[in-house]
Design a protein around this nucleic acid. Structure first.
Lengths: 152, 152
DNA sequence: CTTTGTGCAAATTCTTTGCACCAAA
DNA sequence: TTTGGTGCAAAGAATTTGCACAAAG
């Protein structure tokens, strides 16, 4: 179960890399400078960034960073369950450092991806015949902001 | 609400284009030969095909068909709510002609995309601050087939 | 005859791969 | 000193775009 589960690691503030380093350790991930940077970015930017956005954000501080490494790192983080891979946006993959139970809402007007709080996702909804590793609840529509502006 | 809703249109058999033509009419879609072919394919192949799969399936019968038209048609069908756009598979978009309430399970081993029956998706789970047009419930893991074969 | 739809080719964009170099255990 | 990680350049693959022609109202 790598997502839609209530696990509240890292709820406390952690703006320094030492904590991120420890976080990676919990998931058995060797803490290279690049991996710490990517994980740290995801823990402190709950914007559901794309690989490109992460790369663009980190590149200034790490001139030698490559997109390949960002992609490699994200793949590893997702495989180990430290990060959630969001596929709601057909245009590109987004990533979420918050692995606690919540859904997502994509505004088709402005493209913003919002978190949707969820108490619990009824186990009754789970398919019984297959072994579920992760679950995602996605919504699309028009967000409050865009609804107001467009007066509809 | 274009998906995850219980609307049982077209439950009866319809293997002829006349019905598909009527179906398109219901959604205000002009029934060109190509659109009928794509919609008809989706109504009778519940395999959640990709654009390419649809193209490959129809091309033999329609040598002049182009991928562009398949993409255009799918975009239109989805926009009008006649077809659901599935984004669970990060590699490519899949499409579903069954717009009744159900979730999806993707097997990470064999890549098969299964339907997951759902009674009702609790309205309580819906975000209240935004206007929801569609909802999707996605599961990933190992399917029954692959679980057996791999004895795990 | 005016609007709408189709299809080819080329372009775009996200992501992956091959391979050489670097770094850590 | 062997394994694992990074990064560059190139390739790959899904999708989009521009534009000309065809079809429908």
């Amino acid at each position: 179960m790598q997502s839609l589960q209530s696990c509240n690691h890292y709820k406390k503030k952690m703006n320094a890399t030492p904590d991120t380093r420890a976080y990676l350790n919990e998931y058995g991930i060797r803490p290279s400078v690049q991996r710490i940077a990517v994980m740290n970015y995801l823990l402190h930017h709950r914007t559901h960034p794309t690989a490109e956005e992460i790369y663009q954000a980190l590149a200034p501080e790490m001139p030698t960073l490559s997109r390949t490494t960002v992609y490699n790192t994200l793949e590893l983080l997702v495989a180990r369950g430290a990060v959630i891979h969001l596929t709601i946006d057909p245009r590109f993959s987004r990533y979420d450092g918050d692995i606690s139970l919540h859904g997502h809402f994509l505004c088709d007007h402005c493209g913003t991806l919002y978190d949707v709080p969820l108490k619990t996702l009824p186990e009754a909804l789970y398919p019984k015949e297959h072994r579920v590793n992760s679950a995602q609840l996605y919504y699309r529509g028009t967000c409050a902001h865009c609804s107001q502006e467009n007066k509809q």
